[in-house]
Design a protein around this nucleic acid. Sequence first.
DNA 1: CCGGATCCGAATCGATACTG
DNA 2: CAGTATCGATTCGGATCCGG
Lengths: 234, 234
Amino acid sequence: MAARSYGQYCGITTAVELIGERWALLILRDLMVGPRRYTDLKVGLPRIPTNILSARLKELQEGGVVRRAPLYRTGLVYELTEYGRALEPIVLALGRWGFQQMGEPGPDDIVTADSLTMALRTAFRPDAASSLPAADYEVHVGDVALRVRVEGDALQIAQIAPAAPPVGGRLPDGEPEVVFAAGPGIRLVISGELTPAEAIDAGVVHVLAGEATLLERFADTFHIDKAGSAALAA
Amino acid sequence: MAARSYGQYCGITTAVELIGERWALLILRDLMVGPRRYTDLKVGLPRIPTNILSARLKELQEGGVVRRAPLYRTGLVYELTEYGRALEPIVLALGRWGFQQMGEPGPDDIVTADSLTMALRTAFRPDAASSLPAADYEVHVGDVALRVRVEGDALQIAQIAPAAPPVGGRLPDGEPEVVFAAGPGIRLVISGELTPAEAIDAGVVHVLAGEATLLERFADTFHIDKAGSAALAA
DNA sequence: CCGGATCCGAATCGATACTG
DNA sequence: CAGTATCGATTCGGATCCGG
């Protein structure tokens, strides 16, 4: 394992040695949504070989980033340590940065519940949200469905489908104010290249129920602009 | 190269595909100090195989993170694009995060001019600095020597030794107010585990010239505390 | 010296199968 | 559910070589 060392005494190097291996940051991305079982991670990262998943989880535990915890009577989840949670603003900022270079999805690219949850978190603008009324959305992308509630500067996301993990967030009471389905083109709404109205016209977004005008509020609340990658909230 | 794709349509995934390969982030770290020639990078990353350095530079160019630029009449430097520079606050935050898990250096670990420059940038606290008088330090670690000037909330670092790169920062005029040499234990001063006075007593820091009391100001200006990884300045 | 390209053994990764 | 085991495919590391 010393063979993977970069041979430099430096904080950046240390960080890369801790979380720079292939797949590690994506495992952490999913754990930032909540504690996950081994199998949850495997489902959320369909292309990861299981031996790699095992190896990464072991390394991340040794690095103090991830911890195993019991779930119910028998059962087991992986969760971030406090040190691991400190990575969250960094990963969110990285997501904003990467967002700008996203093109069209490849033919085999998928969107998972956890990746979409984190994508919404990267795009969330607390400042904008706090000056807007509370809102309650239901978002569908592919077969992923999320319940997204914004209140003041707080964002709460619960996974409706596919089958929510046992430790997922609790569903808000009541009905969403708007339900909409989107394809990859939702990216253009987040980036501001399309207004919600244009996105509906272009067939990128379909309103399934509720008030279409609420999409304006959604677009104001979730937005990543060109310079957006620099800001990193604590 | 599509084989390296993670198969997910997500900003974080895109970011990791752009800069997540082995050595990539360390190349970027050095480029954040300034434009560098191929050979500068090779010297600053002694353990990188040259074919990997070539491959990474090519990939980073394709990703729009790095660009080649002419230097003088004949000659060539690699430099960050604007998009690549947007990574800087993220890399600095990552350095703060990794700093906390740094232990003692391994027997073959080295400190380079660029890694030390970036380490000081990660530890720099503009808020603290702006309420302190300006200061002019000369820092030696191993055979690396840096001239470090703090004025208000601005930090300027020039590399004195080893031989400054052709495009390095300009040396400030005048004499440094204090010259000191440090070993790896300087980390304990940055983390606050040792006061400068204790560090001098412990032989971790040697004052070669000037006022030893200025090290107090240095320790106030350059500091990473346990919760420090969260804050990310633009 | 600069800026790589080439070659090859070692280590890692990916895909699949299998197990307590 | 939570992983190991195996094995071919890739990538990495180390060294050498080469054209300007």
